[in-house]
Design a protein around this nucleic acid. Structure first.
Lengths: 187, 187
DNA sequence: GGGTGTCGATAAATATATTAATCACATTAT
DNA sequence: ATAATGTGATTAATATATTTATCGACACCC
């Protein structure tokens, strides 16, 4: 009657989480207000916890159910990237220099972008399933998200759901430099 | 014995899902290979389903556990952030200025970081469940990931699985400025 | 009116999860 | 050495989830 697998290894997942927080079964049990025995059982997949039980356990970290079930992370190759190794995606008036070559399986798409004066992301608004944010390093960037518009300068930042139609434009007289992140990668 | 609330109304959630698919309790029960009675119980929050049970039910739609729990945290989204609005997380020799206040439910944790000359992230290596990357804006940053070390300069970048023990240190004589992204947020 | 089908809810029976109290094995201190 | 802790695992007792079978209510058909 073992291996009541839920499709993924919930036990191992919980154990990894607990270990990464340097917590013992008993310590977690105390925090969550449950017995230590059940934690042992769950980690061996000898018991399938109720959602309420799992919630209690995650409260001890803390971590939400959503985060717990969030899709697993994948393997990764290259760690360091010289400035010259960033891959140029577009290369016109707007330069997208991406950290990493193949984004499949990655959680974040990190880019170093440069907008020439007057350059923008095109006439039509962009929209895709992701979240994105950025920090302005140099210059002035007009950011349009839905019906909101704002001009951001060095040190300013933005963050929004990429499904909302959006657009970027350099409204300054100098080149504009931005570091952006998309999750999941969207190009 | 009622109101075994899991923190959110799982019963209503399931019912809404089922209704939106125009499915009866019995039909879902058949698809999921469980009894219709338990669905009635669960929807009334008179029973807290095991994770395995919930998985079976969601397989009938189909929907993953991750998706089911995905949008239980839907905070108000601030889009634009003035430089002064970035929230300072640590504030010592290393400054972490985060884009956004509450990261729960967000996909990316975007930060504008500054390391004073000689500053580092502490003696012990960091490790957490996420992926992270960054682009160096100014100065020189020594990045240690696992057994690999590298000094990066302006325009250089890094990207790795945060579970690999890592460390950052400003080995230059001037302040070092970096824009980083974590997914999921890890502080 | 009496069928026939479906719906969601409920009761008693059964399977399973969870607890409280151990056990067996390490490491550390005396 | 040996006691004293701390760890994860196990067992019998109990609480709870889940099933099987049933109920009353509503709709449709003849």
């Amino acid at each position: 009657m073992n291996d009541l697998s839920d499709g993924f290894d919930l036990g191992a997942r919980l154990k990894a989480l607990r270990d990464s927080h340097g917590m013992s079964q008993r310590e977690l049990a105390k925090r969550a207000g449950v017995s230590n025995a059940i934690i042992s059982m769950i980690e061996q997949n000898r018991s399938s916890p109720s959602v309420g039980m799992l919630k209690k356990l995650l409260d001890g970290f803390p971590m939400s159910l959503a985060e717990f079930f969030a899709d697993d992370l994948k393997p990764r190759p290259q760690i360091f990237f010289a400035a010259s190794e960033l891959v140029e995606l577009a290369g016109g008036a707007v330069s997208y220099r991406q950290v990493g070559k193949d984004m499949t399986g990655k959680a974040i798409q990190l880019m170093h972008e440069r907008y020439q004066p007057g350059a923008d992301t095109g006439g039509q608004m962009l929209s895709h399933e992701a979240e994105e944010g950025g920090v302005i390093i140099r210059g002035r960037l007009e950011v349009t998200v839905g019906d909101q518009v704002r001009v951001l300068g060095p040190g300013d930042a933005y963050y929004f759901d990429s499904r909302i139609p959006h657009r970027f434009r350099n409204v300054g007289t100098e080149e504009c430099e931005v570091v952006t992140a998309n999750s999941p990668p969207s190009f």
